[in-house]
Design a binder for these strands. Structure first.
Lengths: 239, 239
DNA sequence: GATTGACAGATTGTCTGACAATCTGTTCAG
DNA sequence: CTGAACAGATTGTCAGACAATCTGTCAATC
């Protein structure tokens, strides 16, 4: 019955302005237009978007709830920064959740999901050599999207999406890692084959392993970055 | 260094109105003043709280992001309801996260946390016989709070708090289960001893077991409730 | 009698303008 | 160089307004 309904679903076009603003800001933060730490002055956003302060503020509140933006009282919102410690915790949670997703995928083995996973994986293999990593990133994102969907748990999906947004934040802070691509590909292959084989335990382990590896690189880069530019660390120097 | 700062932390009294409203609404939903499905008309909230529509709306946006409130476009916000299916997924995620928390607690074995856990457990034992379950609930909440803190992961903490708020929602939908208390106590004892023993695997298992048991009861009650009162189910009847 | 269409009432979505509270950087006196 | 005072910037909040949209009702129509 919900199947029928979803077929003639007209997708609710009447989107609110604040929703548009929200997405606009989210992608602006995601692609680095707004950098971590940068302040987001309400009036400026009003001018840039052409909407009133009301809508801007409500959109900001949403992003704040997602952790993408941090608001200091009477000082205003700014794009969230992320410390090495936080990043580490973030990756831990991500590993836990993606492990769950992988495990459930392997358990269900929904043919549709399996097909999408393989499709994206093969797309990744094809575009892996390109200098421009955008295609690769897109395929990887699609792969994850499929896996999340396949786990069949709305809440896990939602939480993971929030986490991924914040990881993107991290990617802006540190630089994109280069040579991990090939390792990464192999790890994803392991995930895929485990899921296809219906081996839940292996799938979970592969997901966790993959995130742990990615985390190690990211955290390392972040720490280096911090040690070099953190003013509070500099202050501790005796000279 | 952050230790020093946190000691003389003056806790930032200058709370914004929207924050007060937010908490007020949250507890109102939590204690059943606003029941699931009930509409929350902005003007009415304005009158009841004495604050302007701006603050109300921003507070509602926050609660919406947490899933406690659902807003239908041009119709307005209402306290979220929760289906048996959603509840099941919610408990799955909760089991995953609390399992993690338990495991980490057992790994760290922070003496301070251990003491708090035992203290709350013993408090639970003492007040378990009372007809009024409020004390018991308070102790249980404190027990969980300690465990969450002990896991040392801010994100897990935050997500779990959100989930717990929504479980409370569920508690409003179905009725409080009565005779589970004694089972519940024994399960919590298992968690505690595993953590105290530093047995991470056992702690994780105990946490997951506990949630699964709680889930089973809750879901059952919810399904019964749904079958009885769901109008869409009634409509499908051929007579 | 059931279906359709129109209408009124209720509420939200959004804008504007305003003003106090608060934060921040700078200047100036000691 | 230290500390106080001040000015500018920005947020937090309110009130009032108005269009867009949803919902229920009621009459007209088949």
């Amino acid at each position: 019955m919900s199947k029928i309904k979803s077929d003639l679903n007209v997708a609710r076009e009447a989107v609110s302005l604040r929703f548009l603003v929200e997405n606009r800001l989210r992608t602006a933060i995601g692609n680095g237009t707004f950098k971590p730490g940068q302040r987001l002055v309400e009036r400026e956003l009003c001018e840039q978007t052409g909407v009133g302060r009301t809508s801007i503020r409500e959109a900001l509140r949403q992003l704040e709830a997602e952790g993408l933006v941090t608001t200091i009282p009477h000082r205003g919102p700014a794009v969230s920064t992320i410390s090495a410690e936080e990043a580490s915790q973030l990756y831990d949670l991500r590993a836990l959740l993606e492990g769950f997703a992988g495990r459930e995928c392997a358990r269900f083995r929904d043919p549709d999901i399996l097909a999408r996973l393989r499709e994206q994986y093969e797309r990744m293999v094809v575009v892996a050599h390109q200098d421009d990593h955008r295609d690769l990133l897109a395929a990887k994102t699609a792969f994850y999207a499929a896996m999340l969907e396949g786990c069949g748990n709305t809440f896990v999906q939602r939480v993971l999406n929030m986490l991924l947004n914040r990881v993107t934040l991290l990617r802006m802070t540190s630089m994109t890692q280069k040579n991990r691509i090939h390792h990464s590909l192999r790890e994803i292959e392991a995930i895929l084959t485990a899921i296809e084989a219906g081996d839940a335990t292996a799938a979970e382990a592969a997901c966790i392993q993959h995130i742990h590896n990615a985390a190690a690189v990211a955290i390392e880069a972040l720490k280096a970055h911090e040690a070099q530019s953190d003013p509070s660390a500099a202050k501790l120097r005796v000279r």
